[in-house]
Design a protein around this nucleic acid. Structure first.
Lengths: 203, 203, 203, 203
DNA sequence: AGGTAAACGAGACGGTACGTCTCGTCTTGCT
DNA sequence: AGCAAGACGAGACGTACCGTCTCGTTTACCT
């Protein structure tokens, strides 16, 4: 099966961009409730059909925006070989993402919707959660490379996912559930706690 | 300042109960999207006005149900003086709450709505988050009572809220964000990680 | 069967007056649509039950107000023995009634409601239309008394009700249906037309 | 200034018809109170929005139906050159309109609403009253053409509108206000009275 | 003086309809 | 084909009044 040769008028990439921008704006300014297909179309200066041709629902719109925002986050990471720095970087990157008003609005709404929608859950896991997982795994990987026997033992015991839940979950609870800011001190504390958990698991 | 004497026909407590039940049912069966004021009124056998007289929005309904479910959770806790048991109990109680289909639907939706609504955020903090906070503080309190110098030192350093974010956040991420189940093994691991974090902070 | 002696607290005549006043005001200011039992109660400073104890519907309220206003009109008539003056007086009295904003609002609404409500129709005929009929009959009576053979012949032919419809109907159409004012010239023209019709019928 | 070319999906004329039919039916069966936008939509098998896209209120619906019914009446008139026949025809046509249950319900209700709504008053005058005016003017016109000096003199004095009020008002009062039927005898009497009034004015 | 019966204010109750909003689908004509 | 425009059936929104009901509180008359 080959890609069928494009027939008729090709899709407008300007519309693509306008739709995503409009979605981001609406999410940032009024949260999930403010995100309506009708509103997106109006703000993007595009017909409703043009939106529906690309996204089946506002949830899809939110996922697309979320994906977009997280991609930007990933690119901003420095390379490092120090596990402590890597962990701190991972935390900081996640925190950065949860600070974006658009992402805040989209994140929990998408998660909530995923509770009754297996396909969406899978998409979230692959495109949103996995982003955090990669960051955490980088830190854990460095820990394993450079650490001695203890760290290796830790790796045998602690599951990557626990560490993921620990780091990402703590940030989600702090920032999204409780609406608190995170500063460098908190990041240090969280990093210390995470490393302690790893070491404890290895003992 | 005293409460003014009730005038006019008193509110029907039967309606109160029917509305909460209906809300719980709808949340459990279809999640946040299935929760409509109209649906609640119909299922509760009550007029829409009767719902609106008590709750200003479906968000309010969700908060009430959440509050209700968490109250039930609290009551189910055994008394203990062992900090390890207390921590495990706290985790188990939170996990239990996040397993309820009604609570799952309500929780993140309410959190998402709170992002653009300071009053709601406050309500969530006072009535939902605080429930978890109390559970965590009980464990930490026992730790302080029974622990030696190390634990006391820990108390001076670690903030209750970090521990709260660590425990509740990890569970939220595992169960709600990622949709995974938690078993006893996971609870043990999380408890160990939390204690390790406390000890590390005290060092 | 005698009227049972009144037991319990007697009705408040202050409430009676307040309700009628409120009804009149609402009708005058916003017409039939503005007349709600709830609004009347609020404006009269009275509980809804107090209104419903006296009037079964807003239609009843309107009839009461109409009745009240027409009574006032009747009282204002001068005695005369000149048929021409009597006819002019009748027209003028009716016109006066249709000028009152409250009466305007009530009149057509009540008539409209009567179309599907025989009991109301009867009440309207007895309490509203009959008022105009009496005025017209007075003029016709004087005409008969003073007129010669021609007028007597007219009386045998023309029905009182035709004259009633002619006079009252013309005013209703001019003032209520078309919303025009009536001046003395119009009253003269209408009087002349009415008398011509009577004479023609007698010919 | 030209009418802009129609864009988007054109309005469904089937819906137009269904809405008018439903309105007519509801008015005929239950009068003004039975006319609800919700009911019209349901009976027409149409969404509420589809009704609101065409009519801003149930008053508008009633006006449209009234307009429609009167148009039908106009078409049913025979051509004649006899002024007496023309006057009788005009009366008969008006009477016919006021016999329709749908028109009865709509007529006075619309008039009542117009009392506080200048725009509606104008619409009523242009679309409902004017229909009767045309009928009356036809009779008066023939009278002028065929009559001698007397009739011409009459035309100089009597206003068309007085004749309109006289004829239409008498019918309205007889049929709608008092709820009486009109037979041929009444029509003859009314025609005679109207002609007498014209002649009297010309004298 | 005390009891009884009705009116009173307040306001909750089950309803109905309102007019608005957004949904996701479907024409229509233009590009 | 894609696209802008906009009508369509559907259905929830939050509000306004409906007419009824339950309260606790007066206010009269009648023992």
């Amino acid at each position: 099966m080959t890609t069928s040769p494009p027939r008729g008028r090709p899709r407008s990439s300007a519309a693509d961009a306008a739709i995503l921008d409009a979605t981001r704006d609406l999410l940032a300014s009024g949260g999930w409730n403010a995100l309506t297909v009708e509103g997106v179309a109006a703000r993007a200066g595009v017909a409703k059909t043009t939106v529906y041709r690309r996204f089946a629902s506002r949830t899809d719109l939110a996922v697309a925006v979320l994906d977009d925002l997280l991609d930007a986050t990933r690119a901003a990471l420095d390379a490092t070989t120090d596990p402590n720095v890597a962990v701190r970087d991972a935390i900081r990157a996640c925190a950065e993402a949860y600070r974006s008003p658009a992402a805040r609005g989209a994140y929990l709404a998408v998660i909530a919707a995923a509770d009754h929608d297996p396909a969406l859950r899978e998409a979230v896991d692959a495109r949103v959660v996995d982003q955090a997982r990669r960051l955490v795994m980088r830190g854990l990987g460095l820990l394993l490379e450079q650490g001695g026997t203890t760290a290796v033992g830790a790796a045998a015991v602690i599951e990557t996912d626990l560490l993921l839940d620990l780091v990402a979950g703590t940030l989600v609870h702090r920032m999204l559930v409780r609406g608190q800011e995170v500063d460098d001190e908190f990041i240090d504390q969280l990093a210390a706690a995470a490393l302690a958990a790893v070491r404890a698991a290895g003992a």
